[in-house]
Nucleic acid binder design. Structure first.
Length: 354
DNA sequence: TATCCGTGGTG
DNA sequence: TCACCAAGGAT
Protein backbone atom coordinates (compact mmCIF):
# COMPACT_ATOMS: atom_id res chain seq x y z
CA UNK A 1 0.00 0.00 0.00
CA UNK A 2 1.28 3.41 -0.85
CA UNK A 3 -0.77 5.17 1.84
CA UNK A 4 0.20 5.56 5.48
CA UNK A 5 -2.45 3.24 6.90
CA UNK A 6 -0.17 1.21 9.17
CA UNK A 7 1.96 4.18 10.12
CA UNK A 8 -0.99 6.25 11.30
CA UNK A 9 -2.53 3.28 13.06
CA UNK A 10 0.66 2.49 14.97
CA UNK A 11 1.05 6.09 16.09
CA UNK A 12 -2.49 6.01 17.44
CA UNK A 13 -1.86 2.65 19.11
CA UNK A 14 1.22 3.90 20.94
CA UNK A 15 -0.89 6.58 22.62
CA UNK A 16 -4.34 5.03 22.97
CA UNK A 17 -4.10 1.27 22.43
CA UNK A 18 -4.51 -1.53 24.96
CA UNK A 19 -1.07 -2.55 26.17
CA UNK A 20 -1.95 -4.25 29.43
CA UNK A 21 -4.25 -7.20 28.72
CA UNK A 22 -3.54 -10.39 30.71
CA UNK A 23 -2.19 -12.28 27.68
CA UNK A 24 0.27 -9.47 27.04
CA UNK A 25 2.18 -10.52 30.15
CA UNK A 26 4.55 -13.52 30.18
CA UNK A 27 3.85 -13.71 26.48
CA UNK A 28 4.42 -17.08 24.86
CA UNK A 29 2.79 -19.12 22.12
CA UNK A 30 0.67 -21.11 24.59
CA UNK A 31 -0.83 -18.08 26.31
CA UNK A 32 -1.40 -16.31 23.00
CA UNK A 33 -3.06 -19.39 21.57
CA UNK A 34 -5.45 -19.87 24.51
CA UNK A 35 -6.38 -16.20 24.49
CA UNK A 36 -7.07 -16.21 20.75
CA UNK A 37 -9.35 -19.24 21.05
CA UNK A 38 -11.24 -17.71 23.95
CA UNK A 39 -11.57 -14.44 22.07
CA UNK A 40 -13.26 -16.04 19.07
CA UNK A 41 -16.70 -14.40 18.91
CA UNK A 42 -16.24 -13.34 22.52
CA UNK A 43 -15.50 -9.92 23.97
CA UNK A 44 -12.40 -9.05 25.93
CA UNK A 45 -14.19 -8.22 29.18
CA UNK A 46 -15.90 -11.61 29.13
CA UNK A 47 -12.68 -13.48 28.44
CA UNK A 48 -10.38 -11.92 31.06
CA UNK A 49 -11.59 -13.78 34.19
CA UNK A 50 -11.80 -17.06 32.27
CA UNK A 51 -8.28 -16.61 30.92
CA UNK A 52 -6.83 -15.92 34.36
CA UNK A 53 -8.49 -18.95 35.94
CA UNK A 54 -7.57 -21.15 32.99
CA UNK A 55 -3.91 -20.19 33.19
CA UNK A 56 -3.88 -20.77 36.93
CA UNK A 57 -5.15 -24.30 36.42
CA UNK A 58 -3.38 -25.11 33.11
CA UNK A 59 -0.11 -23.14 33.11
CA UNK A 60 1.39 -25.00 30.15
CA UNK A 61 0.35 -27.04 27.16
CA UNK A 62 1.45 -30.24 28.91
CA UNK A 63 -0.88 -29.71 31.85
CA UNK A 64 -3.72 -28.94 29.49
CA UNK A 65 -3.01 -32.07 27.46
CA UNK A 66 -2.95 -34.24 30.58
CA UNK A 67 -6.08 -32.86 32.25
CA UNK A 68 -9.49 -34.59 32.44
CA UNK A 69 -11.92 -33.29 29.83
CA UNK A 70 -14.42 -32.38 32.54
CA UNK A 71 -11.82 -30.14 34.12
CA UNK A 72 -11.24 -28.29 30.84
CA UNK A 73 -14.96 -27.95 30.13
CA UNK A 74 -15.52 -26.87 33.72
CA UNK A 75 -13.16 -23.97 33.17
CA UNK A 76 -15.02 -23.14 29.94
CA UNK A 77 -18.48 -23.31 31.52
CA UNK A 78 -20.34 -20.11 30.67
CA UNK A 79 -18.02 -19.04 27.85
CA UNK A 80 -20.02 -20.78 25.15
CA UNK A 81 -18.99 -22.43 21.89
CA UNK A 82 -17.77 -25.46 23.80
CA UNK A 83 -16.25 -27.10 20.72
CA UNK A 84 -13.50 -24.54 21.26
CA UNK A 85 -12.60 -26.19 24.57
CA UNK A 86 -12.72 -29.70 23.19
CA UNK A 87 -10.61 -28.69 20.19
CA UNK A 88 -8.22 -26.82 22.44
CA UNK A 89 -7.37 -29.94 24.35
CA UNK A 90 -7.19 -32.07 21.21
CA UNK A 91 -4.69 -29.59 19.81
CA UNK A 92 -2.73 -29.57 23.08
CA UNK A 93 -2.40 -33.35 22.94
CA UNK A 94 -1.16 -33.13 19.36
CA UNK A 95 1.36 -30.45 20.23
CA UNK A 96 2.74 -32.64 22.99
CA UNK A 97 2.71 -35.89 21.06
CA UNK A 98 3.64 -34.72 17.57
CA UNK A 99 5.65 -31.56 18.21
CA UNK A 100 7.41 -32.37 21.47
CA UNK A 101 5.42 -29.78 23.37
CA UNK A 102 6.59 -26.92 21.16
CA UNK A 103 4.10 -24.95 19.07
CA UNK A 104 4.46 -24.91 15.31
CA UNK A 105 5.77 -21.59 14.02
CA UNK A 106 4.54 -21.70 10.44
CA UNK A 107 1.00 -20.88 9.39
CA UNK A 108 0.20 -24.16 7.64
CA UNK A 109 1.12 -26.33 10.61
CA UNK A 110 -0.92 -24.10 12.91
CA UNK A 111 -3.98 -24.29 10.68
CA UNK A 112 -3.67 -28.07 10.81
CA UNK A 113 -4.51 -28.01 14.51
CA UNK A 114 -8.18 -28.32 15.49
CA UNK A 115 -9.85 -25.00 16.25
CA UNK A 116 -7.22 -22.92 14.49
CA UNK A 117 -8.24 -21.33 11.19
CA UNK A 118 -6.60 -18.79 8.94
CA UNK A 119 -7.15 -15.73 11.12
CA UNK A 120 -6.30 -17.38 14.44
CA UNK A 121 -3.12 -18.89 12.99
CA UNK A 122 -2.10 -15.46 11.76
CA UNK A 123 -2.87 -13.90 15.12
CA UNK A 124 -0.66 -16.43 16.89
CA UNK A 125 2.20 -15.82 14.46
CA UNK A 126 1.94 -12.07 14.82
CA UNK A 127 1.31 -11.91 18.56
CA UNK A 128 3.67 -14.63 19.71
CA UNK A 129 6.52 -14.24 17.22
CA UNK A 130 6.05 -10.75 15.77
CA UNK A 131 6.24 -12.20 12.27
CA UNK A 132 4.24 -10.95 9.34
CA UNK A 133 0.77 -12.48 9.02
CA UNK A 134 -2.56 -10.87 8.19
CA UNK A 135 -5.54 -11.32 10.50
CA UNK A 136 -9.18 -10.76 9.64
CA UNK A 137 -11.49 -10.80 12.63
CA UNK A 138 -14.71 -8.92 13.21
CA UNK A 139 -12.89 -5.73 14.16
CA UNK A 140 -10.66 -5.73 11.09
CA UNK A 141 -13.60 -6.55 8.85
CA UNK A 142 -15.50 -3.54 10.17
CA UNK A 143 -12.54 -1.16 9.86
CA UNK A 144 -11.67 -2.27 6.34
CA UNK A 145 -15.28 -2.41 5.13
CA UNK A 146 -15.70 1.23 6.14
CA UNK A 147 -12.28 2.46 5.09
CA UNK A 148 -12.68 1.04 1.59
CA UNK A 149 -16.49 1.21 1.47
CA UNK A 150 -16.79 -2.49 0.70
CA UNK A 151 -20.45 -3.40 0.24
CA UNK A 152 -22.06 -6.70 1.15
CA UNK A 153 -22.15 -8.99 4.15
CA UNK A 154 -18.62 -10.11 5.19
CA UNK A 155 -19.81 -13.71 5.29
CA UNK A 156 -20.31 -13.60 1.53
CA UNK A 157 -17.36 -15.17 -0.25
CA UNK A 158 -16.87 -12.29 -2.67
CA UNK A 159 -16.89 -9.76 0.17
CA UNK A 160 -14.62 -11.90 2.30
CA UNK A 161 -12.11 -12.27 -0.51
CA UNK A 162 -11.86 -8.50 -0.94
CA UNK A 163 -11.48 -8.00 2.80
CA UNK A 164 -8.65 -10.52 2.95
CA UNK A 165 -6.89 -8.78 0.07
CA UNK A 166 -6.97 -5.45 1.87
CA UNK A 167 -5.99 -7.09 5.16
CA UNK A 168 -2.91 -8.55 3.49
CA UNK A 169 -2.09 -5.32 1.71
CA UNK A 170 -2.22 -3.14 4.82
CA UNK A 171 -0.20 -5.46 7.06
CA UNK A 172 3.29 -3.95 7.43
CA UNK A 173 6.65 -5.71 7.47
CA UNK A 174 7.68 -4.17 10.78
CA UNK A 175 5.91 -4.10 14.13
CA UNK A 176 3.33 -6.69 13.05
CA UNK A 177 2.56 -7.62 16.64
CA UNK A 178 1.67 -4.04 17.48
CA UNK A 179 -0.14 -3.54 14.20
CA UNK A 180 -2.51 -6.48 14.70
CA UNK A 181 -3.26 -5.35 18.23
CA UNK A 182 -3.70 -1.79 16.96
CA UNK A 183 -6.28 -2.54 14.29
CA UNK A 184 -8.27 -4.70 16.70
CA UNK A 185 -8.14 -1.97 19.34
CA UNK A 186 -9.30 0.59 16.81
CA UNK A 187 -12.25 -1.61 15.88
CA UNK A 188 -13.12 -2.21 19.53
CA UNK A 189 -12.63 1.33 20.84
CA UNK A 190 -13.13 3.77 17.92
CA UNK A 191 -14.56 2.07 14.85
CA UNK A 192 -17.35 0.45 16.84
CA UNK A 193 -20.42 -1.16 15.32
CA UNK A 194 -22.77 1.53 16.53
CA UNK A 195 -21.86 5.19 16.94
CA UNK A 196 -18.20 5.02 15.89
CA UNK A 197 -16.05 7.86 17.20
CA UNK A 198 -14.67 8.93 13.85
CA UNK A 199 -13.38 12.26 15.22
CA UNK A 200 -10.76 10.30 17.14
CA UNK A 201 -9.86 7.95 14.30
CA UNK A 202 -6.34 8.20 12.88
CA UNK A 203 -7.63 6.89 9.54
CA UNK A 204 -10.63 9.17 9.03
CA UNK A 205 -8.86 11.32 6.44
CA UNK A 206 -8.90 8.49 3.89
CA UNK A 207 -11.90 6.54 5.16
CA UNK A 208 -14.40 6.47 2.31
CA UNK A 209 -17.42 5.63 4.47
CA UNK A 210 -16.64 8.49 6.86
CA UNK A 211 -16.10 10.98 4.06
CA UNK A 212 -19.47 10.01 2.63
CA UNK A 213 -21.13 10.07 6.06
CA UNK A 214 -22.08 6.44 5.55
CA UNK A 215 -20.26 4.53 8.26
CA UNK A 216 -23.58 3.03 9.33
CA UNK A 217 -23.86 1.24 5.99
CA UNK A 218 -20.78 -0.91 6.62
CA UNK A 219 -20.30 -3.73 7.04
CA UNK A 220 -23.37 -4.85 5.12
CA UNK A 221 -26.13 -6.71 7.00
CA UNK A 222 -26.55 -10.44 7.08
CA UNK A 223 -29.64 -11.83 5.42
CA UNK A 224 -31.92 -12.59 8.34
CA UNK A 225 -33.73 -15.84 8.75
CA UNK A 226 -36.57 -16.89 10.98
CA UNK A 227 -35.47 -18.82 14.03
CA UNK A 228 -37.36 -22.05 14.66
CA UNK A 229 -38.82 -22.69 18.11
CA UNK A 230 -37.92 -25.90 19.93
CA UNK A 231 -39.31 -27.19 23.20
CA UNK A 232 -37.88 -29.64 25.70
CA UNK A 233 -38.44 -30.95 29.20
CA UNK A 234 -35.57 -30.68 31.62
CA UNK A 235 -36.09 -32.65 34.79
CA UNK A 236 -34.58 -31.98 38.19
CA UNK A 237 -34.46 -35.39 39.79
CA UNK A 238 -33.66 -35.23 43.47
CA UNK A 239 -33.05 -38.25 45.68
CA UNK A 240 -33.51 -38.57 49.43
CA UNK A 241 -29.96 -37.37 50.03
CA UNK A 242 -30.56 -34.10 48.20
CA UNK A 243 -28.51 -35.12 45.22
CA UNK A 244 -29.62 -34.39 41.67
CA UNK A 245 -29.08 -36.43 38.56
CA UNK A 246 -26.95 -35.04 35.75
CA UNK A 247 -26.53 -36.41 32.28
CA UNK A 248 -23.61 -35.89 29.96
CA UNK A 249 -24.71 -34.51 26.62
CA UNK A 250 -23.48 -36.04 23.36
CA UNK A 251 -20.07 -34.80 22.15
CA UNK A 252 -21.65 -32.99 19.20
CA UNK A 253 -24.56 -30.61 19.02
CA UNK A 254 -25.65 -27.95 21.46
CA UNK A 255 -23.70 -27.92 24.74
CA UNK A 256 -21.68 -30.87 23.47
CA UNK A 257 -19.85 -32.80 26.17
CA UNK A 258 -21.28 -30.74 29.00
CA UNK A 259 -23.20 -32.07 31.97
CA UNK A 260 -26.82 -31.04 32.05
CA UNK A 261 -30.22 -32.03 33.34
CA UNK A 262 -31.81 -35.09 31.72
CA UNK A 263 -34.08 -34.19 28.81
CA UNK A 264 -37.41 -35.78 28.09
CA UNK A 265 -39.38 -35.78 24.86
CA UNK A 266 -41.61 -32.67 24.64
CA UNK A 267 -44.36 -34.92 23.31
CA UNK A 268 -44.93 -36.04 26.90
CA UNK A 269 -47.55 -33.98 28.65
CA UNK A 270 -47.12 -32.80 32.25
CA UNK A 271 -49.21 -35.65 33.55
CA UNK A 272 -47.04 -38.17 31.69
CA UNK A 273 -43.72 -37.03 33.09
CA UNK A 274 -43.73 -39.54 35.90
CA UNK A 275 -44.24 -42.38 33.50
CA UNK A 276 -41.64 -40.94 31.13
CA UNK A 277 -39.05 -40.99 33.89
CA UNK A 278 -39.82 -44.60 34.53
CA UNK A 279 -39.53 -45.59 30.88
CA UNK A 280 -36.70 -43.35 29.78
CA UNK A 281 -34.55 -43.24 32.88
CA UNK A 282 -35.63 -46.33 34.78
CA UNK A 283 -36.55 -44.28 37.83
CA UNK A 284 -39.50 -44.50 40.15
CA UNK A 285 -40.52 -40.91 40.70
CA UNK A 286 -43.15 -39.04 42.68
CA UNK A 287 -45.42 -36.31 41.47
CA UNK A 288 -43.80 -33.76 39.16
CA UNK A 289 -43.44 -30.19 40.36
CA UNK A 290 -43.72 -27.94 37.33
CA UNK A 291 -41.62 -24.81 37.22
CA UNK A 292 -42.41 -22.02 34.82
CA UNK A 293 -40.53 -22.44 31.59
CA UNK A 294 -38.24 -19.94 29.95
CA UNK A 295 -36.95 -19.27 26.49
CA UNK A 296 -33.27 -19.45 25.66
CA UNK A 297 -32.11 -17.94 22.40
CA UNK A 298 -29.31 -19.44 20.36
CA UNK A 299 -27.78 -18.22 17.14
CA UNK A 300 -30.19 -20.17 14.98
CA UNK A 301 -33.18 -21.15 17.10
CA UNK A 302 -35.10 -20.51 20.28
CA UNK A 303 -35.24 -23.23 22.89
CA UNK A 304 -38.21 -23.29 25.23
CA UNK A 305 -37.03 -25.05 28.37
CA UNK A 306 -39.70 -26.58 30.59
CA UNK A 307 -38.20 -27.50 33.96
CA UNK A 308 -39.89 -30.00 36.23
CA UNK A 309 -38.81 -31.19 39.65
CA UNK A 310 -39.46 -34.80 40.56
CA UNK A 311 -38.68 -36.59 43.82
CA UNK A 312 -37.09 -39.99 43.42
CA UNK A 313 -38.42 -42.79 45.59
CA UNK A 314 -36.04 -44.11 48.19
CA UNK A 315 -34.00 -47.18 47.42
CA UNK A 316 -34.33 -46.97 43.67
CA UNK A 317 -31.09 -47.33 41.79
CA UNK A 318 -30.36 -46.74 38.14
CA UNK A 319 -28.05 -48.84 36.11
CA UNK A 320 -24.50 -47.62 36.25
CA UNK A 321 -23.87 -45.47 33.19
CA UNK A 322 -20.82 -43.27 32.69
CA UNK A 323 -22.98 -40.51 31.22
CA UNK A 324 -25.25 -40.27 34.26
CA UNK A 325 -24.40 -39.44 37.82
CA UNK A 326 -25.89 -38.28 41.10
CA UNK A 327 -24.23 -35.17 42.48
CA UNK A 328 -24.82 -32.57 45.15
CA UNK A 329 -25.44 -29.06 43.90
CA UNK A 330 -22.05 -27.76 44.94
CA UNK A 331 -20.37 -30.58 43.08
CA UNK A 332 -22.54 -29.97 40.03
CA UNK A 333 -21.48 -26.35 39.85
CA UNK A 334 -17.85 -27.48 39.58
CA UNK A 335 -18.61 -29.36 36.38
CA UNK A 336 -19.03 -27.91 32.93
CA UNK A 337 -22.66 -26.81 32.97
CA UNK A 338 -24.55 -24.79 30.34
CA UNK A 339 -25.19 -21.26 31.52
CA UNK A 340 -29.01 -21.48 31.74
CA UNK A 341 -28.79 -24.78 33.62
CA UNK A 342 -26.33 -23.23 36.03
CA UNK A 343 -28.80 -20.41 36.61
CA UNK A 344 -31.62 -22.88 37.10
CA UNK A 345 -29.67 -24.78 39.74
CA UNK A 346 -28.23 -21.71 41.42
CA UNK A 347 -31.30 -19.52 41.58
CA UNK A 348 -34.37 -21.77 41.45
CA UNK A 349 -36.30 -19.01 43.23
CA UNK A 350 -35.93 -16.90 40.14
CA UNK A 351 -38.48 -19.11 38.49
CA UNK A 352 -42.08 -19.32 39.61
CA UNK A 353 -43.92 -22.45 40.58
CA UNK A 354 -47.04 -23.03 38.56
C1' DT B 1 -22.33 -22.27 0.27
C1' DA B 2 -25.09 -22.35 4.26
C1' DT B 3 -25.65 -23.85 8.71
C1' DC B 4 -24.31 -24.92 13.26
C1' DC B 5 -22.30 -23.64 17.57
C1' DG B 6 -23.28 -19.72 23.33
C1' DT B 7 -23.42 -15.99 25.86
C1' DG B 8 -23.93 -11.33 27.36
C1' DG B 9 -24.22 -6.51 25.99
C1' DT B 10 -26.76 -3.03 23.44
C1' DG B 11 -30.18 -0.04 21.25
C1' DT C 1 -39.05 -7.38 25.06
C1' DC C 2 -36.14 -8.48 21.35
C1' DA C 3 -33.27 -8.46 17.19
C1' DC C 4 -28.69 -7.89 16.41
C1' DC C 5 -24.02 -9.03 17.02
C1' DA C 6 -18.92 -9.66 18.98
C1' DA C 7 -11.05 -11.34 18.70
C1' DG C 8 -14.27 -17.73 13.82
C1' DG C 9 -14.01 -22.52 12.80
C1' DA C 10 -15.96 -26.97 11.48
C1' DT C 11 -18.94 -29.44 8.68
Amino acid sequence: MSDRFAERLLAWYDKHGRHDLPWHHNRNAYRVWVSEIMLQQTQVTTVIPYFLAFMERFPSVRELAGAPVDDVLGHWSGLGYYARARNLQKAAIRVVEDHGGEFPVDQEALEGLPGIGRSTAAAIIAQAHDKRAAILDGNVKRVLARYHAIPGWPGQTSTLTRLWQYAEAHTPDERVRDYTQAIMDLGAMVCTRSRPVCERCPLNEDCIAFRRGETHLYPGPKTKKEKPEKTTWMVILEDENGRIMLERRPPTGIWGGLWSLPELDPAYGPEELREACEQTLGLDCGEPDLISGFRHTFSHYHLHIQPARLPVAKGILIQDRPDRRWVHRDEALGLGLPAPIRTLLTRPGQTTLL
